Computed example of a mutant assay.
Amino acid sequence: MPTPTTFKARFPEFIAVSDALVQLVLNDAIDQVGDTWLERDRARAQMLLAAHILTMEGEPGRTENGSSGATAGTGIIKRDKVGDVETEFAVPASSGSGGSALSAYARTFYGQQYLELLRKNFPAVAVV
């Protein structure tokens, strides 16, 4: 089961976030990603979900510079660059209520990775 220490080792961008907050969010993620997941994917999915939730809540920016909430630098990543760190977020075409409940996970890189694991663990079922 992931701890704030293992979470921050995997996602060092969240080092500035308090261990107490990380643990609270990990607890939520652990509740959502339970025993029905493949054991080999469970801890990774829990950490990805926690990273997604923290990002949607505005972390680590909120902790580091006091930016307010999830509106600061979150959303669907349009372009990412590793050398000299550059991330460009896409502007959603509309903010209507239509769409899948799962589409919220597409708003962060962590959520996208979580969705991939979710689909591997719970593939769509076709009825013939």
Rank of each mutant, 00 (worst) to 15 (best):
V33Y: 09
S95C: 10
I53P: 03
I15M: 12
V33F: 09
P60C: 01
Q46C: 02
R79G: 00
V25M: 07
L26E: 07
P60W: 01
G61V: 02
S67W: 12
A16I: 12
S97R: 09
E13Q: 14
M47L: 03
A9R: 07
L49I: 03
D35F: 14
K8H: 12
L24A: 15
D28W: 04
D28Q: 15
V91H: 10
M56F: 01
A43I: 14
I30N: 01
T36D: 15
A51N: 00
F14Y: 14
L48E: 11
L48R: 10
D19W: 07
G98R: 11
I15V: 12
S67Y: 14
S100V: 02
F14R: 02
P92L: 07
R62I: 02
L54E: 06
V17W: 01
F89I: 04
L54K: 02
A29L: 06
A20E: 15
K8Y: 04
S97A: 14
D84S: 00
L54F: 06
G58K: 07
A43S: 14
A29T: 03
K81A: 00
A45K: 10
Q32R: 13
E13P: 00
R40Y: 08
A29I: 03
E64F: 04
G83T: 00
S18Q: 08
E13G: 15
V33S: 04
A9M: 05
F89E: 05
A72W: 13
G69E: 10
A45D: 13
T71R: 11
S97M: 10
M47A: 08
V17Y: 03
G69W: 11
D80C: 08
I77T: 11
R42H: 09
I76S: 10
V33Q: 05
S95P: 01
M47W: 02
M47H: 04
E39N: 12
T87R: 03
V22R: 08
A16R: 05
F11N: 06
R79T: 07
K81R: 03
I53G: 07
L102I: 06
S18F: 01
A70M: 14
A16S: 13
A29G: 02
P12H: 06
D41R: 09
D35Q: 11
S18A: 13
F7G: 06
L102R: 07
G83P: 00
G58P: 06
Q46V: 02
W37Q: 08
T74P: 03
I77P: 01
V91R: 13
A101F: 10
A50M: 04
R10G: 06
A101W: 07
S95L: 15
V91I: 15
S95F: 14
L38Q: 15
G75I: 00
E13C: 04
E59Q: 14
R42V: 06
T55N: 09
W37V: 04
N27Y: 04
